[in-house]
Design a protein around this nucleic acid. Structure first.
Length: 342
DNA sequence: TTCTCCCGCCATAAC
DNA sequence: GTTATGGCGGGAGAA
């Protein structure tokens, strides 16, 4: 008898297919997902002391039920925007509680971090501020959007802002939001036009990209904006407006700063929403700036001057303005189509 | 057929 | 060297 016979071999990955009744091999990520589910079920029996979200078999879960918007909704149930003080978020635990892969948590937390709802504290750990600093940050974003002349860039009257080097998703989220903030209330923006403003077409790499590569890059950015838009909808910053007569594709409208999710949550969690003072901002700047090389462009207001600016909340924007913006969108799409043909 | 966007590979940063 | 993070695009469900 060989002594190696007593050594327990590492099980083959596809052994879990017996549990899932799948005939296919199980990837490492799928293994993790399954283990997470099993852990959840065991924790449900034990004392997990948390809201449980048992994960139904993937075959029973519709695509829409797994959307980033719904996932973010559930995330915000765990960590409300109106929570008092700061909460420490363990990313892996949160992913397990929501029954999703950790990768999906990065999608959400990166966007929320870009909105200063959270800050990366250390490995696997984020500090959750909720919406406490959102109002002040939106004012800063509006100012920055004006500096970047995004409103003019939207109409082709100004150069597009330079491409971000790091934290693309977060930076794109900030810039996407800027587009709404620099425009009057009820301005409709669609993803195609947003992408064309947010992507720097003059960067060096652009010149060596083939039309096919450019097309793929464009589509990739649109995909990212869908992700961002879904999180923004969940947060209550924007709404999807469908069924307009000019554009077939949905457009988005700013409805922020952010919504109160449910009446019961107002009772449980909601203090009055108060803009963060500059003093408080400065106190936390060292945390917000971080030391990561993967930085966001805008992390905190820099001057007291910026705090004086207000977000345009005019409610009586004339309806012809909608048509104006839709016309811009239509022109952008037409230009894109023509450019593609040429 | 096109739109929407989930999923997970894999490169890079962080440790 | 290992692990954490996040860019990216394939491809499948929804419209």
């Amino acid at each position: 008898m060989n002594e190696n016979d007593n050594i327990v071999c590492t099980p083959k990955r596809n052994v879990l297919t017996e549990v899932t009744n799948s005939t296919n091999n199980v990837s490492p990520t799928a293994n993790l997902k399954l283990l997470t589910t099993v852990a959840l079920q065991e924790n449900a029996v034990g004392n997990f002391n948390a809201v449980q979200y048992p994960t139904p078999p993937s075959s029973a879960v519709h695509r829409k039920e797994k959307s980033l918007q719904i996932l973010c909704d559930r995330f915000l149930e765990l960590y409300p925007l109106h929570s008092n003080g700061t909460i420490e978020i363990q990313l892996d635990c949160t992913a397990a509680r929501l029954g999703v892969e950790k990768r999906r948590m990065y999608d959400i937390i990166n966007i929320l971090e870009a909105m200063q709802c959270a800050v990366h504290k250390r490995k696997n750990t984020y500090l959750w501020y909720g919406g406490s600093r959102l109002n002040a940050f939106l004012k800063m974003l509006k100012k920055e959007g004006e500096n970047l002349k995004l409103s003019d860039a939207l109409r082709g009257k100004a150069p597009k802002p330079p491409a971000p080097k790091h934290k693309t998703l977060g930076v794109m989220a900030q810039r996407f939001l800027m587009l709404f903030l620099v425009e009057p209330q009820n301005t409709l923006i669609n993803l195609e036009m947003a992408v064309r403003v947010l992507i720097d077409t003059n960067n060096k790499n652009r010149t060596i990209l083939s039309p096919d590569q450019q097309d793929r890059q464009h589509k990739s950015k649109v995909r990212r904006l869908y992700d961002i838009a879904n999180v923004f909808i969940s947060v209550g910053l924007i709404e999807k407006v469908s069924g307009n007569s000019i554009l077939k594709k949905p457009v988005f409208k700013y409805v922020g700063p952010f919504k109160v999710k449910k009446p019961i949550e107002v009772i449980l969690y909601t203090p009055p929403i108060t803009p963060l003072s500059m003093l408080e901002q400065q106190t936390h700047n060292h945390i917000l700036m971080g030391k990561s090389k993967r930085k966001l462009e805008f992390t905190a207001p820099n001057t007291s001057k910026e705090i004086k600016l207000t977000v345009n909340t005019t409610m009586d924007t004339p309806s012809h303005k909608w048509n104006d913006i839709l016309l811009v969108a239509d022109m952008e799409l037409t230009k894109m189509k023509c450019g593609k043909i040429l």
